[in-house]
């Protein structure tokens, strides 16, 4: 069979959806673990800033490799989502008067919508905290650099204190803005919804699920989705309530 026929088949789109989804799932978990260092119990300001410094000084240009892989992942995920949506709409030109469903979950029926809003969130989030170029929130210009700390002492290099960007203060300032925090919390809610379907669905898409595993995976997806949701939203809530400052 022609390789192109296979490449453009419905199933390859689903494989790509699943693989890019899996990368996203791994990234989101890692990102959460990194973020939780804002809590003084898990490190606090110095540890958080040192972690940010470490990410920015990974060897072999790893930071950019990871960034490019992640951007490509999002691009492919969204591209496949668009193709699937177009083709699926085309397959049912005339709809039903009665659109009842029997067992499809709310999450599965809203993947497109949760996805589109997540995309908007991802773009804002990168502009907000990565490139720091949102008007009125240009943290590179407004936040002073701080000494890089290790075990409570400033890190010295050739007789000078190493200075680093104060990512901790940026996060505190960023989430002190109520609309920003609300958008963040809503987006995390939609991510939770997206994942409660996605995390189980991705196994089905690559053929690694059966009836008994579906029950388990659905539960895992639910726990994972809620864990991600609660973990992420705890940070803006802690900042807004003054627990973290």
């Amino acid at each position: 069979m022609q390789v192109t026929t296979i490449l453009f088949s419905s199933l390859v789109k689903k494989y790509l959806m699943a693989v890019t989804g899996l990368i996203g799932v791994g990234f989101v978990a890692g990102h959460l673990l990194g973020n939780l260092q804002v809590y003084s119990l898990l490190g606090g300001a110095d540890a958080f800033n040192a972690y940010a410094y470490k990410l920015h000084h990974l060897p072999y240009g790893l930071l950019w490799i990871v960034r490019i892989v992640l951007l490509a992942t999002v691009a492919v995920h969204v591209w496949m989502a668009v193709l699937l949506t177009i083709e699926n709409k085309r397959a049912r030109p005339e709809g039903y008067a009665d659109n009842s469903t029997v067992q499809a979950t709310y999450a599965s029926k809203t993947m497109r919508w949760s996805g589109v809003i997540l995309l908007a969130f991802i773009i804002f989030h990168i502009a907000h905290y990565t490139t720091r170029s949102v008007p009125g929130m240009k943290y590179n210009e407004t936040i002073e650099k701080v000494p890089l700390m290790k075990e409570g002492k400033p890190v010295m290099q050739s007789g000078e204190v190493v200075m680093t960007f104060d990512a901790y203060t940026m996060v505190v300032q960023g989430f002190s803005n109520l609309p920003v925090s609300i958008f963040y919390i809503v987006a995390m809610g939609l991510l939770c919804l997206h994942l409660t379907h996605g995390v189980s669905s991705m196994f089905q898409s690559v053929g690694l699920r059966n009836h008994s595993w579906q029950k388990r995976l659905d539960k895992i997806a639910l726990v994972y989705g809620w864990g991600i949701f609660l973990g992420f939203i705890s940070i803006p809530i802690s900042i807004l309530t003054g627990v973290v400052s």
């Binding site: 419905s10 789109k13 689903k14 699937l84 083709e87 699926n88 085309r90 397959a91 049912r92 469903t101 029997v102 067992q103 499809a104 599965s108 029926k109 993947m111 379907h197 669905s201 089905q204 898409s205």
Partner: peptide, 10 residues
């Protein structure tokens, strides 16, 4: 021209 499966389970 059938659509793609997105694991609804309907």
């Amino acid at each position: 021209g059938f659509g793609n499966c997105t694991n609804y389970g309907e």
